[in-house]
Amino acid sequence: MDTVYLLITGFLSVVLINNLVLTKFLGICPYLGVSGRIDMAFGMGLAVTFVMTLSGTLTWLIDHMVLIPLGLEVTRYVCFILVIASAVQLVEMYLRKFFPPLYDSFGIFLPLITTNCAILGLCLFLNLWGIDSLLEAVVLSVGGGIGFTMAICIMAGIRENLRMVDVPECLQGAPITLITAGILSLAFMGFAGII
């Protein structure tokens, strides 16, 4: 029972309170770039969630099975980024071969994801938070991805409506998106303290 409670609080914490985009500033580039249309945003979010779950789990395993027992923590960053890059490549090839419809819907985002700092960021935070069970690492990785999807979809929804608004010329584009993100992050601060 304790484990379930722990997993639920961890999940809520990473989705709402420590949302990767709005409080840790990870994955801002795609957040500003692709979040113009809600269906695109959802596709991107799915792709990120998928890769994040995979690479979060893989890097946690490598960290705890190989690097820590061998005392090679110093090469952690190099290993992590290589794991992420190869995971993305593998997923891309696999999808293109076996699930063409799925590849058509979100495959185009996959190459972009290697340099998405949310993925590496989550892997590093898993290490920083001292997560010591595989189950927890998986749950937090999924949560991180869902948090990203949620943030990017909310933003896309707002931006679809923002098109009909008379924004001052100098604030159009990225500036107004950042200001909106600021107000969103203020709203998300309200979740702090629920756990």
């Binding site: 309170i17 420590n18 409080t23 938070w129 702090a192 303290g193 756990i195």
Partner: peptide, 9 residues
């Protein structure tokens, strides 16, 4: 020791 605060540890 580590406590559980408002936003984080």
């Amino acid at each position: 020791v580590v406590g559980s605060g408002f936003a984080d540890k």
